[in-house]
Each structure stands twice: as structure tokens, then as C-alpha cells.
């Protein structure tokens, strides 16, 4: 049960990252690799603030805000300075690596014996359960600490998902989605296309930084390397999510992103349990995303050759 709960918890925490990438990758159609840097940025800012005695909630909030800034800078590089899409992200990601080291002061900050956002939840649950340190979930004993982290992640994730859905259905959100869909049309409707890209990337990286801040608190440390490969993980989650729920509506797409992330974490947990070398994880993920991207084309041509063959017979 422990391993499943931890997969769910990490899944819920990383769902914020996936939702963020949903905005950049799927809505704006912007391949934004800033993610790898802004994820660590969120973790770094939150870790440093918590170690220095700030409230974990405030630390998480400020970490999210730094992500918003990082994303908007990538957006400005692309719109204002006409730097290629991929390159704007790479520049920002590279710059963030040094910035993150500066913020942290060293490459790793442990968060031992510090409070985290799940602290208050834990307090409430333990007072309800009568000072036990384990409770029963579906017949499994689970430590209250683990369960309260899970619950906190769930609440934050659901709130973020609801807020994102609400936003994407407003006038502004509609304009933002259309910006990725058809820039020419958007300008013809009097919408500042460049502004929408900056706004979208900003929101996207804000969510990513939030995810990083939460993960640092969950795993008990922030590491300058923790963001590497996050973008591909997010992609894999988006793809799985789309397979699970489809994209018929905004609500379903967002639900898919959340479920996809959890499902992906479960798959990873199982693979690691079966003896997959953790060092191979990123390779396996990259191969998975590759297959998910090309499989539809293969299936299509395969179907065509089979049906074509039948017709000729």
C-alpha cells in the first residue's frame, strides 16, 4: 500500500506540472523546455524559504510566482526578440540552472525536520484519529504523515484543476486557446497574440514551479538536477491522459492530465518494483514518448495497407 500511496501522491503533485504543460504544449502549441528549469526553480525557492523559517504555504506561493516570471521571460524572448520557440526555452532553462544554484547556494538542500504544506492537514487528522500514528485506509495501515501529504496534494491538485478549467472557459482563456489554434484568426479578432503567448507560458511555468515546490517538500530535499527530464515526463503524462479520457471538452482534458500523471507514476512504481534500474528511467520514458508519437501514424499506414490489400484482392 505504501508504494501505491506514494505513487498517487507524487502523481497528484506532478499533475500540476502536467496541467501547466497542457497550456504550453497543447493549447499554445509551444514546445517549452523552460519546464526543466522552472520546476527546479520552484523547488529551490520553496526549500530555501522553508529552511529559513518561512511558512511553507507562503514559500510555495512565492515559488509559484517565480515560475510565472520565468515563463513570461521565455514568452518575451520568443515574442519580443523573435528568438525561435525551442531556443527561447533552452536559453531560459540554461540561465535558470545557474539562477537555481545561486538561490540554493549549493546543489542540494535537505528539508529535514522542517514544516511542509501538509503539516496542518496532519495536525487535523491526528487530532481526529486520537493521536495514533497509523490509520486504516481500505484495510491497509498507513502512516498519518503519508496520508496527510496525499490528502494535501489531492486538495491542491483538485483546486488547481478546477481553477484551470474555469480560466480556460473565460473570455481570456478562450482567446488564449485560440492563440495556439490559429494566430491569424486571433489577431483578426483584435486579440494581442503575443500577449497571449506570454500569459500562457507564464501560467504554465507557474504551475510547473508549484509542482516543483510541492515535490521538494514531499521528498524532503531540493536538488539542482531534479528538473532534468521533467518536460518529457509531462509529455508522457499528457499522452496517457489523452488516451484515457479523450479531449472532447476542457474538463475531460484536464481530468485526463491528472489521471495520466497518476497512471504514469503507477507504471513507474511497478517497473521499479520489477527491477528497472532507476538510471534507465529517463531512457524508458523517452522511448515511450517516441512510441506514443509515432504509433498513431504506424497504425494508420498499417490499417491502410491491410484494407488496401483487401480491396485489391
Amino acid at each position: 500500500m505504501g508504494i501505491v500511496l506514494s505513487a498517487f501522491t507524487i502523481g497528484l503533485i506532478l499533475a500540476a506540472l502536467t496541467m501547466g504543460m497542457l497550456i504550453s504544449f497543447r493549447m499554445l502549441r509551444f514546445t517549452d523546455i523552460t519546464v526543466d528549469g522552472s520546476f527546479t526553480l520552484g523547488a529551490a525557492v520553496a526549500a530555501v524559504m522553508i529552511v529559513n523559517g518561512w511558512s511553507p504555504w507562503l514559500a510555495t506561493l512565492i515559488a509559484t510566482a517565480t515560475g510565472l516570471v520565468a515563463g513570461s521571460i521565455t514568452g518575451l524572448l520568443y515574442t519580443r526578440f523573435k528568438i525561435q520557440m525551442i531556443l527561447s526555452g533552452i536559453l531560459m532553462m540554461t540561465a535558470l540552472y545557474s539562477i537555481n544554484l545561486r538561490i540554493m547556494g549549493r546543489s542540494n538542500i535537505p528539508l529535514l525536520d522542517t514544516s511542509s504544506v501538509s503539516g496542518s492537514t496532519e495536525h487535523i487528522i491526528s487530532s481526529l484519529s486520537g493521536e495514533l500514528n497509523r490509520i486504516n485506509i481500505l484495510g491497509w495501515p498507513v502512516s498519518i504523515t503519508d496520508f496527510s501529504v496525499f490528502l494535501t496534494a489531492l486538495i491542491i491538485c483538485v483546486l488547481a484543476a478546477i481553477a484551470l478549467r474555469w480560466f480556460l472557459l473565460t473570455h481570456l482563456g478562450t482567446a488564449l486557446r485560440a492563440s495556439g489554434n490559429n494566430p491569424q484568426m486571433v489577431r483578426a479578432q483584435g486579440i494581442n497574440h503575443n500577449l497571449m503567448i506570454v500569459l500562457g507560458l507564464s501560467l504554465s511555468n507557474g504551475l510547473v514551479a508549484l509542482s516543483g515546490a510541492l515535490l521538494a517538500q514531499y521528498q524532503g530535499f531540493a536538488d539542482v538536477q531534479m528538473g532534468i527530464g521533467m518536460m518529457v515526463w509531462g509529455l508522457a503524462s499528457i499522452i496517457i491522459g489523452e488516451a484515457l479520457t479523450g479531449t472532447r471538452s476542457i474538463g475531460l482534458t484536464i481530468a485526463g492530465a491528472v489521471l495520466g500523471t497518476i497512471f504514469f507514476r503507477l507504471l513507474i512504481a511497478i517497473a521499479l518494483r520489477w527491477g528497472l534500474n532507476p538510471n534507465d528511467l529517463k531512457l524508458v520514458t523517452a522511448v515511450f514518448v517516441f512510441l506514443a508519437l509515432v504509433a498513431p501514424i504506424w497504425v494508420k499506414s498499417l490499417r491502410k495497407s491491410i484494407w488496401g490489400g483487401l480491396r485489391n484482392a
Binding site: R177, A178, N181, N182, V186
Partner: peptide, 9 residues
């Protein structure tokens, strides 16, 4: 005809 509307919406 595809330029004036956002296809995915």
C-alpha cells in the same frame, strides 16, 4: 476558408 476560424474550438 480555414484561416478565419480556430479549427480546434
Amino acid at each position: 476558408p480555414f484561416a478565419g476560424t480556430a479549427a480546434g474550438m
